[in-house]
Nucleic acid binder design. Structure first.
Lengths: 234, 234
DNA sequence: TATATCTATTTGTATAGTCAAAAGCGGAGC
DNA sequence: GCTCCGCTTTTGACTATACAAATAGATATA
C-alpha cells in the first residue's frame, strides 16, 4: 500500500469512525509529512483527493477541516427530510407516531444481519410539508451503536437530523421501490388505499455496525427524486 | 486556469463530445507533456483524476484509453436494461411496440426545452426479463442530434444500447417517481390497473443538445434500484 | 513448437525543492 | 477607534528527477 493511500485511508477512517468530527481541524501538511516520514507532495495528494471527495475542506492559511456531511452529492444522497424541505423553501413539521425500545425479532434481525436480541429504538414518524403528509418514516436505531438515542424524545428534532449530528459520517445502502399503500399507510398519508408510493429504504453503518435502518414511504403524487449527472460530477 | 485543469477538461471534452470514443487510445503522458509544455507529473495528475472519475482506463506499458461508459457508478447511473439484465444472469428480450418519426408537440417541446417543430423518433418498447414484462420504455430520440437513428429499426438492438454506442458519453438528468399503472400500462406489463410502478425518467444531453428523453415504467413488484454509498465512493 | 528471458515502454509513486496565492494577524499611522 | 501595510502560515501548482512495477513484444533457448 502506498504512503499516499495510507494517509488517505487513515484520515478517512478517523472521520468515518467519528474520531474527527465535522469542523475539526486536521494536522497541516508538514505535520502529516513528518508523521508519515514522507514529502509534503505526498500528503498534499492524499488530502486533495479527500477534498475532492468532499470529506474535508481545505483553506489556505487556516488549514484543512473535516467537512459537513455531504448534502445532495448524488441523487441517492437523500438527506433528512426537514433539511431538504427547508432548502426548497417549504414549511416542514413532523409528528412522532410511535416510539418504543424493544428487541429485534428474528426476521428483522436476519434482514439487518444483526443479532436477534439486539436492543433497538423503534420509531414511527409522520412528516408534513406545507400542511400535507409527505412521508411516513419507520425507523430502527441500534441502541448499542447509538446509546444516547435511548434518552432522546425526538420531540423537537427529527430522528434523521439528530442522527446526522450524532453520527455524521457513515456508509449507507439504499433501495428505492414503488409500493401500493396499505390501509394504514393510506390513512396516515391521507391518500387512497392502493395509491402508488415511493419507498426509500436506507441502512446505515459505522465501523461495520448497523446504526439505523429506515424506510420512508412517500405518496407518489407528492414526491420524486431528481438529479443531474455528468461524467465529471461536481 | 491551471495547466492540470486545462488538460483535464480538454480530455474530458474530447470524450464527451465523442471526438475520442470508448477504446480509443489517448496520447501518452510525455506527448501531452510536450503539447502542453509542462512536466509529466502535471499530465499524470490530470489523467489520474480522469481515471478516478472512470472516464479513462490506464494500463502500464499500453497506455491510457477512453473507458466504456460507466455501469453502476451510482444507483442513478442506471444503465440500459439489457446490459443490467445480462449482468445479473437473467434472460432478457425486448419488443418494439411502436416506432414513428414525427415532430414534437407544443407541450412536450416545452418540457424538453427544445423547439416545437423538432423532428424526433418516437419509440415504445417492452422489456421482458425471464419471460415476464419488466419495463415499458417510452423514448424520444432527437433526430437532429442523432440522425442515424432514422434508419435504425431497433429490431435486434435495444434503443438504449444502440444510443450508448452512438453517443457513449453524455450528461443526464434523472427523475424517479412512483406512479399507478393506467389501463394501457397495466395491460402491457401484465399487471393490475392501479398497481404501483416505478418510473425512471432520464433526459440526456451532449454538447448542450438533447439527445434522448426516456421513461421506463417498471412494475413495482418486480423492480427496485439499489446501491451502496460511502463517503469515499468506489 | 513451446517456454523462458530480456528489453523497451508506459504508468505509478515519491522526493525535494520553487514560486504563487490566499488569508489571518499584528503593528504603524492617522 | 479605523485603515493600510507587511509578515507569516498554509495550501496550490508545478518542475525535474528518480526508481519501481507492469507488461507487450522481441529474442533466445530447450
Amino acid at each position: 500500500m502506498s504512503i499516499y493511500q495510507r494517509i488517505f485511508t487513515d484520515v478517512e477512517t478517523k472521520i468515518i469512525s467519528g474520531d474527527w468530527r465535522p469542523g475539526d481541524r486536521i494536522p497541516v501538511e508538514h505535520e502529516l509529512a513528518a508523521e508519515y516520514r514522507c514529502s509534503r507532495m505526498t500528503v498534499s495528494k492524499a488530502l486533495s483527493a479527500l477534498a475532492e471527495r468532499g470529506m474535508i475542506v481545505r483553506r489556505r492559511k487556516t488549514g484543512s477541516f473535516v467537512a459537513s456531511p455531504q448534502i445532495d452529492r448524488t441523487v441517492m444522497d437523500i438527506q433528512d427530510i426537514s433539511t431538504e424541505a427547508e432548502l426548497a423553501g417549504h414549511e416542514h413539521r413532523f409528528e412522532i407516531l410511535a416510539r418504543k425500545v424493544e428487541r429485534l425479532g428474528e426476521a428483522e434481525a436476519q434482514q439487518l444481519s444483526e443479532p436477534a436480541d439486539a436492543e433497538v429504538l423503534r420509531l414511527q414518524c409522520l412528516h408534513i410539508v406545507d400542511g400535507r403528509p409527505n412521508a411516513i418514516e419507520r425507523r430502527i436505531i441500534m441502541l448499542d451503536a447509538v446509546p444516547r438515542a435511548r434518552d432522546e424524545s425526538f420531540a423537537s428534532i427529527p430522528p434523521g437530523k439528530w442522527l446526522l449530528d450524532e453520527v455524521p459520517w457513515s456508509k449507507a445502502k439504499h433501495i428505492i421501490r414503488a409500493v401500493s399503500a396499505d390501509t394504514t399507510t393510506a390513512r396516515i398519508l391521507q391518500t387512497e388505499r392502493g395509491e402508488a408510493c415511493l419507498s426509500l429504504i436506507r441502512q446505515t453503518w459505522q465501523n461495520g455496525r448497523t446504526v439505523t435502518y429506515v424506510e420512508f414511504t412517500h405518496p407518489g403524487d407528492r414526491f420524486q427524486f431528481a438529479g443531474t449527472f455528468h461524467p465529471m460530477a461536481n
